[in-house]
Write a protein that binds this DNA or RNA. Sequence first.
DNA 1: TACTTGACAGCAT
DNA 2: AATGCTGCCAAGT
Length: 104
Amino acid sequence: MTNYEPDINHRIWQVVALIPKGRVSTYGHVAEKAGLAGAARRVGSALRALPADSKIPWHRVLNSKGSIALPTASGSHQIQRDQLEAEGVLFNTKGRVDLEHFGW
DNA sequence: TACTTGACAGCAT
DNA sequence: AATGCTGCCAAGT
């Protein structure tokens, strides 16, 4: 049967939902845990398709550099940063999270 | 149906 | 450190 993609989104969201509060992860890592190793972009698509009222902690997902992937001009960018700081995640002067602090 | 875009990542310049 | 290219895979045009 044809692979219905929305099912993959659910799997990705499932993985993101497991990220503990005050912690962060990366697109690449989420992709790997969802069985989509190497397809980090697929994770971006899944989060983009995420309904605004979902309980998925999408804000805990950063790119490989530890920075927020959304455009600075984007309103979501600010929201994501606020959410993380509210959980105790610190940003350096370059607007990046110190991934090594979390064992990356 | 073919080409382009995108919440990415990793390596080469 | 910044920029560019390639690999990935679904969605949009």
